[in-house]
Amino acid sequence: MLIPAETAIHRFRRDMTFGRLVKGLFVAAAVAAFVLPLAGIRLDPLMVLPVIACVFLALSVGSIRGSRLTADSPSLIAAGRFEEAEQRIDQALRSFSLFRHVKVVSLHHLALLRHAQRNWNESAVLCRALLGQKLGSMQGIGKPARLMLADALLEMGDVRGAGDAIAALYQQRLSLAEVLKLVAVQIDHQARLGAWPEIFAGVTAKVQLAELMPAAAAARTQALLALAAKKTGREDWSDWLRRRAELLADFQKLAADRPVLWELWERKVEG
């Protein structure tokens, strides 16, 4: 089972509009309960308001089901149980929810799933749809979505788009996990532009951050830093970083993913 990105986005937008409409109706009904008696219509607010509250409560309880469905998706994705995650996300996207965050989080998780499946195009489309929404109190989700979008665009070769996606993040306060992701994406982006001195600037801090990344990201980041060191004439750094990268990942896989890195292992391959 595969949820097409366009279908998910269409469903997401429709449900967001419907949710807004339902909430608007509740507000209108509550206001009307006070205003209509003043206009001479016999209506007891004491009778109407509890009914409105009960209906709201019932719909809220139903909406919590969607929240529960989305809660497990990230751990399922991390464990590589993609089909199960997809089922949960599909159910959450289909279920009715009064709360906007259920829909926003579900779409974000779908983008995350596609990213984990290396389906860069769909991941980027979903992230763009998410970022195109007014997120309001859910602004926090915009940061990982931007980072994911930039990463997906880099994988697709859209260097300019990736730069635009991360530009907005430089002014924002990020969590450590987001900083780590941003550093990895930024170095990858600058490497595509051939901005080697910029990559090597502040190398000590960048290396400290790379040490906190998962093995694959740490290896790629340090390999790109090693190449930047080589290009800027710091052979000592280049050699040290290259050897560290080799201990964290298979260098042939690293260079296959980022062909520019072959320059680090030319001699080894020739040998």
Binding site: E211, L212, M213, P214, A215, A218, L247, L248, A249
Partner: peptide, 13 residues
């Protein structure tokens, strides 16, 4: 160990 521990694979070495 390398996959799961990242830089902490240094402990194993």
């Amino acid at each position: 160990l390398r996959e799961a521990l990242g830089h902490r694979v240094g402990d194993a070495y």
